[in-house]
């Protein structure tokens, strides 16, 4: 008999206070409690974290890589959004 699939979870870990949670991988578990325990065993065996988030993978909405041009190109053409676009005379010093 084929083994039934269990839901997939994405795991995020905060490695120390002051840093954001970062995606570290995924795992299978039937519920959130088991997902948290499995995340501890799989992803923090060497003190990698102080805090864990687990999120059902199907709760994530992702952008489509084939539309990344449409999605991100508008930001690339607006160089005036960067400080280096503006000339400040050297005499003015650091700004």
């Amino acid at each position: 008999m084929a083994t039934p699939n269990t839901p997939l979870w994405e795991v995020f870990i905060r490695s120390r206070n002051g840093l954001a949670h970062k995606h570290v991988g995924s795992l299978h578990a039937t519920d959130a409690t088991l997902a948290l325990q499995a995340a501890r065993d799989i992803y923090t065996r060497r003190g990698e974290g102080l805090s864990i988030w687990v999120v059902p993978s199907n709760a994530i909405t992702a952008s489509d890589p084939s539309e990344k041009g449409m999605m991100f190109e508008p930001a690339e053409s607006k160089i005036y959004r960067h400080p280096t676009f503006y000339d400040v005379p050297e005499e003015v010093g650091h700004m």
Partner: peptide, 25 residues
């Protein structure tokens, strides 16, 4: 225990290609 963890990271990587861990196992 590490070897078990390594197996699980790898199954997760394989799953991103479209086969489920259960199928592979």
């Amino acid at each position: 225990q590490d070897e078990c963890g390594h197996g699980l990271y790898l199954y997760a990587a394989a799953e991103t290609l479209g086969s489920s861990r259960e199928e592979l196992v």
